[in-house]
Amino acid sequence: MSGQVDEGLRSELQKQGIWVTSTQELYNWGRRNSIWPLQFGLACCAIEMIATAASRYDLARFGGEVFRPSPRQADLMIVAGTVTKKMAPQIVRLYNQMPDPKYVISMGACAISGGPFKQGYNVLKGIDRYIPVDVYIPGCPPRPEALLHAFMELQRKIDGQKLTGEKKAPFLDRKQPSEFPVPAFGAHDLEPPANPDVFRPPVVERT
């Protein structure tokens, strides 16, 4: 464990060409530098996502340039754009098809809460009603730099995940669900309108 080796000693050893590490660090280092996102865009934000992956912003610097068209090969779902009620079941299904460990970035105002289209009858007011989200990026659409920042935040999160012990990462806990029920199309709305196991909104006083 890295905790058992003194930081100063570690860096001194590193200067001499000896690298001391732990399985957890090595494992997380490998995971965080090869996040494969699902190639999946919904609306305007998807264009900024493509711009992030293109030559100027170059997502490859963070190891995330391998966009996979199949959810079976993806680690990360970037929900880029407005989630409509007609699309929401498909997104939950795609999330369920992704293998663990999996992460979700909710990109843009629409994916967070419905954004400017919140008052639309066919707009889902936030993808976190059905699936858990790791990083939220505000913006309409967020700039490519913001997506890069979200990527770095996610890498930080992965770095901090423990493999053993009480506080081990949720995907290692067998009791934690990795699939969530897919909502059905109802006569007026999706059924159910939110998954209560995932969605716990704050209640604010209204006068």
Binding site: Y121, K125, D189, P193, P201
Partner: peptide
């Protein structure tokens, strides 16, 4: 439209 405004935080 369907009733999904009660979750609006602000």
């Amino acid at each position: 439209e369907p009733d999904d405004y009660e979750y609006e935080p602000t």
